Every structure is written in structure tokens, then in C-alpha cells.
Amino acid sequence: MPFSYATVVETTELSTRLRRIVLHVEDHEALAVAPGADSAIGVYFGADPDSGVGRNYSVRHQDGARITLDVFLHAHGPGTNWAATAVAGDRVGLDHARCWYEPEPTTEWQLLVSDLSGLPAAARIVEELPTGARATLLVEVAAPDDLAYLPSNDDISVIPSIGTGNGHGPSELARAVRDLALPAGRGYCWFAGEAAESRTVRKYLRSLGWTIDQYDITGYWRHDSEAWDTRFEEVQDDVLAVYERALSAGKGDKLAFEEFDDACERIGL
């Protein structure tokens, strides 16, 4: 994918846990930031962005060559270290522009599910929902003031879970989805949160008879990721082959990923 460079031009403290970073992208046309409401890019930081550590962040706003990232600060990690200390003039590398949120035109209502990692994308979805669109947002946050970040929208019903998940304890998102009385009509679900929770939610919706075009469910982060990565390295050739075979059979990226994820689950990942 095209790799572009960007310079930090502005930073703002939005809250004790949230920092806004505005970047000027040197070749934004080559980067081709996706227009979807959960648009995201890979950001590579460090002394040498070409070989630096990278993390994925949602694009909260874009105005030509300027893109705005709102980053939640966790207890530790290279992404948090970068976001907490970034200053004007710092350079980063950018690539992997993409998005997932794509409700079908026949969608009658939406279920949005997010923890702190997906909150900037959820905020943009809420902000850009067409007038009259029916939606429920299940959101898991660290503290009540995190909810103030969300734009107001009278068409959205917000159901919060405060103090759960987000690396501090068990997530309640999958349980909240199962406990929710879903409206009649054709629904669509967008999920952004911990990977194991995303798997549980996807399996639940499939058990209800939902088809693959009715959801876009993405694991934004993974609990105990270091142990998972170590185990994945041992079996990656086998499970990636499942993904490649599905693509070769013309099943599409979303279904190929589901078959890959099912293969991972079968071997304990």
C-alpha cells in the first residue's frame, strides 16, 4: 500500500485520557484516506518512521492534507507513548488507509458497539448518521466523562457500561449485545473493541440468522496480545493458508477473515 509521511502540526488535550493530534500529510492523494465513517490509517512513529513501530488510529476529521486523530491514552505501550508526547514538528509514516463501516441501503436500524479504542470512530459515525436513522450505541468506557466526547444525536440511544473492559477488567460488550432486545426489521451491526469480544458478537449474530452483509465486526485490540502473537507465530502458515484459500475461491475479504478466525479459534487462538 502507498506509504506517505506526515508532520504533527497541532496537539490538544481533550480530556485526561484523550489527546487530539493533527497531521499534515505530504502526499495525501497517494495515501487515499478512506471516506468511511470509521476510516483508519496505520501510523508509524519513532526516530525512523520507515522502520518504526506502528499502530492503527481512526481518522476523526479530514480536510485535504490535514487529518485529525483522537487517541485514547492507555497505561502503557508504544502508541500511548507516542500520542502522549507528540509535538508540532514530529514526523510519522502513514499507510494502510481503510474502513469497515458499510451498512446496506436496506438497513432499517443500526447497532453500534464500541469500547474506548473505537470511540473516535463511533463518534464520527454518530455525527455523520443521516437524519432520522435509527441506532443504538452500546459503549464501554472508563469513566462517565468519556461519554461527553460523543456528539449529541436525538436519533441515537446510548447505553453505557462504565468502568468495565478496556484492559481494566472483563468486557461487558458481548453480554450487552446478547441482552439487548433487537428491533424488528433489517438491522446492521458495527463493532469496534477487543478481539475476543468481537468473535463472540459475530457468532451470536450469525446464530440469529444474520447474513455477512449485515455486520462489520472488527477487533481493534487484543487482550494478552503478546502471548497471542507468540502462539500465532507457531501456526501462522496453517491459518493464513485458510485465509488465502478462501480469497482464491472468490469468497471475499470479510468471509475469508471469518474462516481464518474460525481456524484460529479451533487451535485455541
Rank of each mutant, 00 (worst) to 15 (best):
P2R: 13
P2E: 01
F3N: 04
F3H: 09
S4F: 02
Y5M: 13
A6N: 06
A6H: 06
T7H: 01
E10N: 12
S15K: 03
T16C: 02
L18N: 12
R20P: 07
H24E: 15
D27S: 13
A30Y: 03
D38Y: 10
S39V: 12
S39Q: 09
A40P: 01
I41P: 09
V43Y: 08
Y44F: 15
G46K: 11
P49L: 09
V53P: 05
G54T: 00
G54A: 11
N56S: 14
Y57T: 02
S58E: 00
V59L: 13
R60P: 07
A65R: 15
R66E: 13
R66S: 08
V71Q: 05
H74N: 05
A75N: 12
A75M: 06
H76E: 10
G79A: 15
T80G: 07
T80A: 06
W82S: 08
G89Q: 11
G89S: 04
D90H: 14
D90F: 01
V92M: 07
W100L: 02
W100S: 10
P103K: 10
P105H: 08
E108T: 12
L112M: 13
L112P: 05
G118T: 10
A121R: 05
R124V: 09
I125D: 05
E127L: 00
E127D: 14
E127W: 05
P130W: 08
P130G: 10
G132H: 08
R134A: 12
T136F: 06
D146Y: 11
D154F: 01
D155I: 09
I156L: 15
I156P: 05
S157Q: 12
V158S: 09
V158D: 03
G163L: 08
N166G: 04
G167E: 10
H168Y: 03
P170K: 09
E172I: 02
L173N: 10
V177E: 07
D179Y: 03
A192F: 11
T200C: 03
L205H: 02
L208P: 11
T211C: 07
I212F: 09
Q214M: 12
I217T: 09
A227S: 13
W228L: 10
W228Y: 15
D229W: 04
D229T: 03
D229H: 13
T230Q: 14
T230K: 01
R231F: 14
E233K: 15
E233A: 15
E234T: 15
A241K: 14
E244C: 01
L247G: 03
G252F: 09
D253H: 07
K254Y: 01
F257C: 04
F260V: 00
D261L: 12
I267V: 15
